[in-house]
Amino acid sequence: MSVIDIRELTKSFGHTRALDGLDLQVGEGEVRGFLGPNGAGKSTTIRVLLGLLRADGGSARLFGGDPWSDPVALHRRLAYVPGDVALWPNLTGGECIDYLSRLRGRTDPARRAALLERFELDPRKKARTYSKGNRQKVALVAALASDAELYVLDEPTSGLDPLMEAVFTQEVRALRDQGRSVLLSSHILSEVEKLCDTVTIIRAGRAVESGTLTQLRHLTRTRVSAVVRGDVRPILAIPGTHERTSERPVGADGGDGAVGGAGAGAAGPDRAAGPVGTGTTRLTLEVEPSALDEVLRALAREGVETMTASPPSLEDLFLGHYGDQHAPQASRERA
């Protein structure tokens, strides 16, 4: 059974369509990353999921139930960290933590104390004196100290320093190891890459990509960089390769490196290349999954001195989806 099952969800605010047929599933024991830029609809999705907003269309099920009509029973089973943590200004951090975790039911003083220590939070300070990061820690401690089946975390590390982020990472890994489900909304790719089994990428209220990290990586190019002994031209001519650059080392005969292909963003030859033997060519290119076989065969045929192949980062995945969106915006700003 899915812990979270959102299908064809739509939600409008006036003329703005915040969610436009969104699909999102989280299974039991799954840690799902929920990636998207600001304003893509991540927080709106979570608010519908918590029964704070009513869906206009489609369905949002939480533990198989309807979060709008039956929130209390469902909320007993989850813990939530909002993206922008607001606390009661005249309560201390400790009081806020206790209140929030008592509302959820069972509390575990030992776990609370341990978390306070790990996150280096002083619980005696009034909430209004906390910085953004410290308010975030209060919400994190309150959520992590409670024993829930599902943790809904909305950009939980915003405002945390790298040390605290590391603590957070460890805590979420511990949850994963215990078989808890987690929905982690974020725009920090490395965080999702470190923690999540599966990822849903949302853009303009729709899920544009969804699957395991491995599956998603298949959709993207592998970056290959090699020093080739033979002729690079056949390799550069293979369809399905992009961002091709090749370069003959300085001082070698044969003149300039052949820069093949018509990739729009092809970078210039890398003049600062390391020492490479005479007669060899340094070659970098990005290869589509379908072309990978052919490229490797061609490389082997021509003879390879050194080679690295790096898997696509989530960053590439992300930029692939948003890069074209940013471009018109930037040009509009320039106008």
């Binding site: 909320h75 939530y80 909002p82 607001a86």
Partner: peptide, 15 residues
């Protein structure tokens, strides 16, 4: 409007 209500209603507390 401060968002504190959201945190409370995300717990098992009915409106």
């Amino acid at each position: 409007t401060s968002g504190r209500l959201e945190a409370v209603l995300a717990a098992p507390v009915s409106r």
